[in-house]
Design a protein around this nucleic acid. Structure first.
Length: 524
RNA sequence: GGCCCCGUAGCCAAGUGGCUAAGGCAGCGGAUUGCAAAUCCGCCAUCAUCAGUUCGACUCUGAUCGGGGCCUCCA
């Protein structure tokens, strides 16, 4: 039984879908006016994992992420760069697509663009006017919040509380809290013809219009960062529910935002409240970059996409994620435990762990009572327990952070099995033991697949000269060292190892010979 | 000022009204190794403070202190 925490009810609710066996999921996507930073990746990674888990659990999921490609910021940025808004949007959309793809986010079915849905938006707006929830004013169209008696229930605030100054268009509004569905075009701005004159959509209406087109009037899951609860999602609810007279989404999921360690404020947010920010560093953009607002593609040069994905999934999604490079380095160290195990698995079985095809559905991965009968070493019993706990955590509001603990525990259990059974020594191997190991590794692959991790082997570590010549030289070094060890000349053997360690090459003596790897950071 | 969230070991981070409070990073012992590395085993938390409810609270309630988000474009 999957339970999800909905912001609307402020509680965890059992997942009961609109249509049996199907889930419609909408995530508010980016406004494509500048390159995405790591903060923009939180939602896509989490909801990608949610879709994977729902699919794994047997649901047919339609996952929609919108692209906001018309907006004040796009207009301002395109003017500043002397390019058309469409060209800017295309460039930044491509950047976004590259970034989420790198992170393994490939479960999104539709990326509707606002500018491709102007007709739908105009039709939606016309309906709201006809139903008297909206009014035209001087070429603008506003939603009248006083007509919606439920306005404010998502963000838990009253209309009075939301009364601001009304902004620069206050004189055209009936109430300060009214928000624009359609904005009349200023000279030179991109615009589309409409019954109210040339203009463009307001920020909120696109999501109501596009989610309806692709997912229907009521769909299952609406997601986004919790900073969107007000006003964006509140206004979506108002538009859609007043238009249709029925709930817009059954579950409103909001992910916590990326926070910069040792800094005030979310990544990429305003930094005006930082207590003691070094002005020069800020000018040099170092502060904001170290906070994570550097373009995501730059971060990818420093850390692998898998490291970043693992890092983002290591915390329960509703909590803020504390970001810093130190955290990512820590994640790297944690991930290395897995990569070392993968090599070990390959040494033992002769086959890559990546060759194991994990079960695509939960029911396929379930153990049969007979599976455990032949279990003479209690390995599979423990494996089943870790799997069950992992799935329990995922069932409980997609608790990837808690589930991660079970992945580590399974890793340790499999290592222990290899130790206990001495499987690194070929003579100790039996078909039954290798089968047990493989079965355990299959569960590991299953967990990875659910979270979208370990889908392909990590790129070989950069050595700065990891080529054929280096390989041959290393072969020579290891041969000399092996000879020395054979003659019990450990001084020479240790000197070779010590010097190699100093230049960042780690040696590991194993039953089958000595292996060498390039370390992350050469010791000084 | 209004609304909301959080405060668990050196750091990060799950979790529960009552068996030994996951896991990771770092650290310290031990097994293993010629010595290492890797791996395994073990150690490392009176769950911010105070009061209350309860047979019993880290878990519920209230207060206090501390941190954060939203209220304006935001993932």
């Amino acid at each position: 039984m999957i339970r999800l925490y909905s912001t609307l009810s402020r509680s965890k609710e059992p997942l009961e879908t609109v249509q049996p066996g199907k889930v419609g999921m909408y995530l508010c996507g980016p406004t494509v006016y500048k390159p995405s930073h790591i903060g923009h990746m939180v939602g896509p990674v989490i909801f990608d994992a949610i879709k994977r888990y729902l699919t794994y659990s047997g649901y047919e999921v339609t996952f929609v992420v919108n692209i906001t490609d018309v907006d004040d910021k796009l207009i301002a940025e395109s003017n500043a760069r002397g390019m058309s808004m469409a060209a800017l949007a295309e460039e930044m959309t491509a950047d976004y697509m590259r970034n989420i793809k790198a992170l393994g986010v490939d479960t999104i079915d539709h990326f509707p663009r606002c500018t491709d849905n102007i007709d739908e938006i105009i039709a939606f707006t016309k309906t709201l006017i006809a139903k008297r929830f909206a009014y035209e004013s001087d070429g603008d169209v506003y939603f009248d919040v006083t007509k919606d008696h439920e306005y404010g229930r998502l963000s838990n605030r009253t209309t009075e509380e939301t009364q601001g100054e009304g902004g620069s268009t206050a004189d055209r509004k009936r109430n300060a809290a009214d928000f624009a569905l359609w904005k009349t075009a200023k000279p030179g701005e991109p615009s589309w013809p409409s019954p109210w004159g040339a203009g463009r959509p307001g920020w909120h209406i696109e999501c109501s219009a596009m989610s309806r087109r692709l997912l229907g009037e009521t769909f299952d899951i609406h997601g986004g960062g919790l900073d969107l609860i007000f006003p964006h999602h509140e206004n979506e609810v108002a538009q859609s529910e007043c238009c249709h007279g029925k709930p817009m989404a059954k579950y409103w999921l909001h992910n916590g935002l990326l926070q910069a360690a040792d800094e005030v404020g979310k990544v990429g947010g305003r930094a005006t409240r930082s207590a003691a920010v070094d002005i020069e560093a800020q000018i040099a953009n170092k502060v904001s970059k170290s906070k994570g607002s550097a373009p995501f593609r730059e971060l990818l040069q420093q850390f692998s996409a898998e490291t970043i994905r693992f890092f983002l999934l290591a915390t329960q999604y509703r909590r803020p994620v504390e970001y810093s490079e130190a955290r990512l380095k820590e994640t790297e160290a944690a991930l290395d435990n897995f990569y070392r195990f993968f090599k070990r698995y390959e040494r033992v079985t002769g086959a890559s762990i990546y060759a194991i095809i994990p079960p695509l559905r939960r029911t396929q991965g379930d153990f049969e009572p007979g599976d455990l009968e032949s279990d003479t070493d209690s390995l599979l019993k423990d494996v089943v327990q870790h799997r069950t706990r992992f799935l329990d955590a995922m069932d409980d509001d997609i608790n990837t952070g808690g589930a991660m603990g079970d992945v580590f525990e399974l890793l340790r259990r499999l290592n222990k099995f290899i130790d206990d059974e001495k499987l690194e020594k070929p003579e100790a191997q039996t078909p039954a033991k290798l089968a047990s190991l493989r079965r355990g590794a299959t569960v590991f692959r299953e967990m990875g697949a659910v979270m979208g991790l370990f889908r392909e082997p990590p790129a070989e570590k950069q050595s700065g000269g990891n080529n054929e010549l280096v390989g041959k030289l290393m072969e020579l070094m290891l041969e000399l060292r092996a000879d020395a060890r054979k003659k019990k000349d450990f001084a020479t053997a240790d000197q070779i190892r010590k010097r190699l360690t100093e230049i960042g090459v780690i040696l590991e003596d194993r039953p089958g010979g000595t292996e060498w790897t390039v370390s992350n950071s050469p010791s000084p």
